[in-house]
């Protein structure tokens, strides 16, 4: 579709990625987005910028350095003690101001609890379009606008959404959907500082406390290298122990399909899929999981998928790498034993 951009909007240039961090560590999704942003910026022939907001100090500036390593040409930096912990109001204000002053054409954020909270507020304040949970980002060669593709109807179809006559074009992407680029520690860039212009008494919401997750499950599942997942085919909660056993031998994380988390066999944050986690391990083992589209969209980017299912017609065999048609209650212990023996041999040899 051809569009004549209003000259006021045509002045918006450059691709931005919001660098999310909490508790002193950047969220990996921001680096995944820099990899994607780099491709978009190159296609448009513009610069790629990271946006870093946080308390004044070394720790915050380190995120700028990391952004350069992952492909940013420059960083916009807003330092203020008010930004020490994420709160909607000052972050929305800071990011909105930056956009109004420096006018990027594309702004990307991670679809995390923080990113979704911030993106929705910023897009409304700026009165622009925001496409959620994109799985693919491209530049439309016809009109140089962002073509953002996302699943619809539970992942059974995809749709491509564009924001034609508004700037910036905003999009969020879930962790692990895009691959992590190789960092280049030799890379550097310039920092553009900008003031926040707020005082603490302006901010209504106060953080009373932060209770860290004890088992920090969440990040671990999304970024695990090996995941063993179980589904309703395991029939009884006791049988789920077979999943834990195999996971233990492999040093893997445990995942599950939705019926299993809903039945309370494992905690809800282990659910893989459209309404759970998107994962991208090197190896995903699925036992007693049918491979419904809502599960598939969360794990099909895994390098290798091994499926164990009684039913040779189960949809999971349509996209798994290896399939074993059989009873999970017999196959799982056999696999656990086979891996255990292999590791014992490897240990002796090594």
């Amino acid at each position: 579709r051809k569009v004549e951009l209003d000259p006021r909007l045509a002045a918006y240039k450059g691709v931005w990625v919001f660098i999310e961090h909490e508790r002193g560590a950047a969220h990996q999704v921001s680096f995944e987005l820099l990899g994607e942003g780099r491709k978009l910026a190159d296609a448009l022939g513009v610069e790629l910028a990271g946006v870093v907001m946080g308390a004044p100090g070394e720790a915050t500036r380190r995120f700028c350095a990391q952004a350069f390593h992952y492909g940013a040409d420059l960083c916009y930096l807003v330092e203020d003690p008010i930004l020490a912990e994420y709160r909607n109001e000052p972050y929305t204000r800071g990011l909105t101001d930056l956009v109004n002053v420096f006018q990027p054409e594309i702004l990307l954020l991670g679809a995390t609890t923080l990113g979704r909270d911030l993106a929705g507020s910023v897009a409304t304040t700026l009165q622009t379009g925001l496409t959620a949970d994109c799985t693919e980002l491209n530049i439309d060669p016809e009109n140089r606008s962002l073509a953002a593709t996302r699943p619809t109807f539970g992942g059974s179809l995809l749709c491509t959404i564009q924001t034609l006559n508004y700037r910036p074009q905003m999009a969020t992407v879930r962790p692990r959907v895009m691959s992590l680029p190789e960092p280049d520690t030799g890379r550097s860039g310039r920092i553009v500082e900008h003031p926040l212009g707020l005082v603490e008494t302006d901010i209504v919401t106060k953080v009373l406390e932060f209770i860290p997750d004890q088992n920090r499950d969440q990040a671990q599942l999304a970024y695990a290298d090996i995941i063993v997942s179980g589904g309703r085919g395991l029939k009884r909660p006791e049988n789920f122990q077979l999943i834990w056993d195999l996971a233990k031998v492999l040093g893997a994380e445990v995942g599950a399909s939705r019926p299993v988390t809903q039945a309370g066999w494992v905690s809800a944050d282990r659910q893989v899929g459209q309404t759970g986690k998107t994962v991208r391990p090197k190896l995903y083992i699925a036992a007693g999981i049918s491979g419904a589209i809502q599960h598939r969209v969360g794990m099909e980017a895994s390098d290798v998928i091994i499926a164990i299912n009684e039913d040779p017609a189960a949809p999971i065999f349509d996209f798994a790498t290896y399939g074993i048609v059989g009873n999970a209650m017999q196959i799982l212990p056999a696999l656990t034993e086979a891996f255990r023996q292999h590791l014992a041999t490897a240990r002796k040899a090594g």
């Binding site: 579709r1 009165q127 622009t128 379009g129 925001l130 496409t131 439309d140 073509a147 699943p151 619809t152 992942g155 059974s156 179809l157 995809l158 749709c159 491509t160 959404i161 564009q162 924001t163 034609l164 006559n165 508004y166 099909e300 998928i305 499926a307 040779p312 999971i316 065999f317 349509d318 996209f319 798994a320 790498t321 290896y322 399939g323 074993i324 048609v325």
Partner: peptide, 19 residues
């Protein structure tokens, strides 16, 4: 501001599993 440009079916990304 957002315009749905197209709706399409996902491409089969993989071959059927080796059983």
């Amino acid at each position: 501001p957002t315009v749905v440009a197209k709706v399409f079916a996902p491409q089969a990304r993989r071959e059927r599993a080796e059983l």
